[in-house]
Design a binder for these strands. Structure first.
Lengths: 119, 119
DNA sequence: GCTATCACTTACCTTTTGGAAAGTAACTAT
DNA sequence: ATAGTTACTTTCCAAAAGGTAAGTGATAGC
């Protein structure tokens, strides 16, 4: 009986570690979280908007990051019927669940900046 | 008056973006969050404990990551008076503030794994 | 015809990350 | 003397990440 419970707890623990690693994998790199945070402030943004607002990113890298985010169901890509063509990117409902991560990162960053100012 | 407020809000916004980027910089890479999470479960761990429990990490990489975490005030390194020498690593009080980040990553990972199982 | 805009793509290159394998230094136990 | 333990370090290398600069294709306005 306690053995079953141990197994369940072990399985649950393993699952949590896998989930943790998946999250890190999904959001890794210099830009992905920054892009998600940017999209969370604006509902939809065009490629050019992102290029201008995600300071420092180049079109090549932006394009690659957007493709990966789309593949992982975190953003949607919509071609608009405009001339010249524009393309709108938006967070999926699912991606909105990354908000706690982003907020936690900001909170920690603020604390860290205060910490290193102490010296 | 509203201008001052705008400036304050802008400054605050900039500060939050800097904080966000600092956090990402501090915790980037394949291993750092994993190491922090591991240390959060055990109070202190020796180099060898970490090598065994952070599955897949090599001594070279572990050593480098620990040095960076120490430099950033996230862990402490203590040489123990044992034979052969052992070295204990522990989270700083400050690093314990990363817990919300780790929990948020686990939560999102769990949701993501459910999402992709749907298909 | 020429220029401009948008959303990319391509080629090339440098830097960073991280892994494999072996070695080292200090010390203990046999 | 030799083998074992701990905590690393060193060398060498491959892959990934990311930047620069230029180009492409569709279309519109002048």
């Amino acid at each position: 009986m306690s053995l079953v419970r141990n197994n369940k707890e072990k399985a649950n623990c393993t699952e949590r570690i896998l989930a943790f690693k998946d999250s890190i994998e999904l959001l890794k790199g210099k830009w992905k979280l920054y892009i998600l945070q940017m999209l969370s402030t604006s509902e939809t943004m065009r490629f050019k908007d992102l290029q201008e607002n995600v300071v420092g990113i180049t079109p090549k890298v932006l394009s690659k990051e957007l493709q990966e985010l789309e593949q992982n169901l975190l953003i949607t890509r919509t071609v608009n019927n405009t001339r010249p063509v524009t393309v709108s990117y938006a967070l999926t409902k699912h991606a909105k669940e990354t908000e706690p991560i982003i907020n936690a990162l900001i909170d920690f960053g603020v604390k860290h900046r205060m910490k290193i100012k102490e010296k």
